[in-house]
Design a protein around this nucleic acid. Structure first.
Lengths: 113, 113
DNA sequence: AAAACATATGAATAATTGTTCATATATTCA
DNA sequence: TGAATATATGAACAATTATTCATATGTTTT
């Protein structure tokens, strides 16, 4: 690793002081990691249109029930979605407005280019 | 996979019609995947305070030059950051305002809870 | 209570990925 | 030009992870 030039130490200290805590950054990375999978993004995009049951998601995404359920559990553990039971079926929806906002921002970034 | 109830087919078709294309969703997942790593989030958080050279990032993050450079190249390939050379040093900065916005939204989501 | 239906989950496998080590490239300075 | 400095990069290894298969759990219907 290269030596630090004296005129850089100030910038480094100041940046260090202004950055969010390691804990916040770690958690933020974990949240983005959950967004960072095609299957999960497809699920989130579907749910951003409204709540949906597992079998509908399977049909819509043309994926196995097992694969969808596994990813739903990842999304739920990260609190990106919530669930509600209605008889035999489970309905999933986005957990809060933040989730839709993050998704939209990401999609916009991709679309505008 | 369970059968689809007749009353669900409408919802499925409508959701399918409203969702972004597979290509957009795939690219969006790829973007979030790049955000979904602690080292890269730390780099982005540092750069959101202003441009910085590689050796400063190494010092700030207490990581090897090789590890930092590898992640910088991932960030650059995904166009999240851009670089500029000044003599022997390379200065990196966020590519555009979107990047800072996505980062901030993610951090806010983590902080507000 | 048994059968049918909808969903969840453990284990295994295949694929992806982050770091390290060694080394290459590029720029400046003597 | 040669040495020193700053950064980049290929290969290898370890760790993480998404899907599949088989099966378990929970709910309704007969």
């Amino acid at each position: 690793m290269a030596d630090i030039h004296p005129e850089h130490t100030h910038i480094i200290e100041q940046t260090k002081a202004n950055m969010p805590s390691e804990e916040i950054l770690e958690k933020t990375a974990e949240v983005f990691k959950v967004f960072g999978d095609k299957t999960r993004i497809r699920i989130l995009a579907a749910l951003s249109e409204g709540e949906m049951c597992v079998c509908c998601l399977c049909d819509l995404l043309e994926m196995s029930q097992s694969a969808v359920s596994h990813q739903l559990s990842v999304l739920k553990a990260a609190r990106l979605i919530k669930s509600r039971r209605e008889g035999k079926q489970m309905y999933y929806s986005l957990d809060d407005a933040h989730i839709g906002a993050i998704l939209c921002t990401g999609i916009s970034h991709v679309e505008e280019d």
